[in-house]
Write a protein that binds this DNA or RNA. Structure first.
Lengths: 234, 234
DNA sequence: GATTGTGAAAGCGTTCACAGCC
DNA sequence: GGCTGTGAACGCTTTCACAATC
């Protein structure tokens, strides 16, 4: 059941694209598509075929030359590589606006990341129920993490509390963090960290907007290369 | 008042770090710090000094050798380069869970991105007020965009509606998009696009968790290099 | 003496192009 | 003939290391 053996490390840039392939493959599977070429997959993902093939080659040689990839089998391989054959309960620290939205969002549980706990420090929040989960005090974090075997923590606190939240999560035994607070947090070596900062994203867009305004020329940026767009007017 | 002239293009990777520097510089300024070295700035940002200097050098030569950078002046320069000397009102398409959270979040307006409009298609949503803004129907999008001179659109719809939302935004005249929907959307050349996908972030963490579980070794990932950490108990 | 600014080197990620296989 | 898998070339990003400057 442990598959082939722990394979070679996959470059981080490729890892970041695997979830996109997985979503597309799942959609195609639901529509009854059995086989897909790197060209088609690239089209859906807004990438080029060479990149798709290179990415998939890190999983192993699961395609068939002259034919393409079997969708169902590839889904299984990507899921396995991403560790999605099991659920990963998460604990959310911070039950404010953002924490509540995340808990109520639903997209977490659906995709194998059920909210296993919510944590806050405010008396007004502790004890309330958000998205079906009772909010508990930071003091109980370690107990929550250990009893539910949680390894992923989501930081949805204000920036000022983020480092404290991270420290508490790591102390409780969490080994991966997803940080929504607008602060750089530092973690011990060996702990994985991803960061989502809305203000940063908007400020990056602002840069290109401003540039567009001052120099009358376009720029590529993160834009999908638009290889065959779906009727985007303009 | 238009500064030096539209300067050379800054590499995308550097642009993405400027907002981080800006936040740190602003915090330091608030604490009364007048001067900062690349080493110190790097420390706060979880980067190394050479990268900081290279990034800042794209703005111009605003440091003083042997001394460092004057904080207030550098803030001004970064803000100018990022186009943050003006407000950029945004329109949010999708007034569901996520859209409401974004509108109510407050972090937008504070940082120069006021919510200039909210759009939905559901009769039940249109007319309601979210975060102080009245939700209007998709049919009114172009009017909202034009009357408030909006150039940034935020897509907070379900995945199935995201491409339609993007097309409508572009047709209405928006030139930058921030997409929260879990779908690849394609846009015409010249339109800027950034994407935030919670499920993708979690799945990336899952990969490293799974890897940690199967091979007993750590990996760097996006983790802060932890050059002098602040008491994170390992 | 300290710290910036920057060419040059090294490291990664993407793209090319084609051999290998169906 | 069609499509994958991949070494090699290319380009972007990071890091090094040091001359220039205060």
């Amino acid at each position: 059941m442990a598959g082939k053996r722990s394979r070679r490390r996959i470059p981080e840039a490729s890892v970041a694209r695997l979830p996109v392939y997985l979503r597309i493959l799942s959609e195609q599977f639901d529509e009854g598509v059995n086989s897909i070429s790197s060209e088609e997959l690239a089209e859906f993902a807004g990438l080029n075929a060479a990149k798709v093939r290179k990415d998939l080659s890190y999983l192993g040689s699961y395609g068939t030359r002259g034919v393409g990839y079997e969708v169902e089998f590839l889904i299984y391989q990507v899921r396995r590589e991403l560790g999605l054959t099991q659920d990963w309960p998460v604990v959310i620290v911070g039950a404010g606006n953002l924490g509540q939205a995340l808990a109520g969002y639903g997209g977490f549980g659906d995709r194998g990341f059920p909210v296993g706990g919510m944590i806050d420090v405010a008396e007004s929040k502790v004890g309330s129920v958000v998205g079906g989960v009772r909010v508990r005090h930071l003091d109980e974090l370690a107990q929550v993490v250990q009893s539910r075997n949680i390894s992923i923590g989501v930081i949805a606190t204000p920036g000022t509390a983020a480092q404290e939240a991270a420290d508490a999560l790591v102390a409780a035994g969490v080994t991966s963090l997803l940080n929504f607070a607008p602060t750089v947090i530092s973690v011990p070596h060996g702990i994985s960290m991803r960061k989502v900062d809305l203000a940063v994203e908007l400020q990056i867009l602002s840069y290109y907007e401003q540039r567009r305004a001052s120099t009358e020329q376009s720029n590529g940026l993160q834009a999908v290369p638009a290889e065959r767009r779906r009727g985007a007017s303009a």
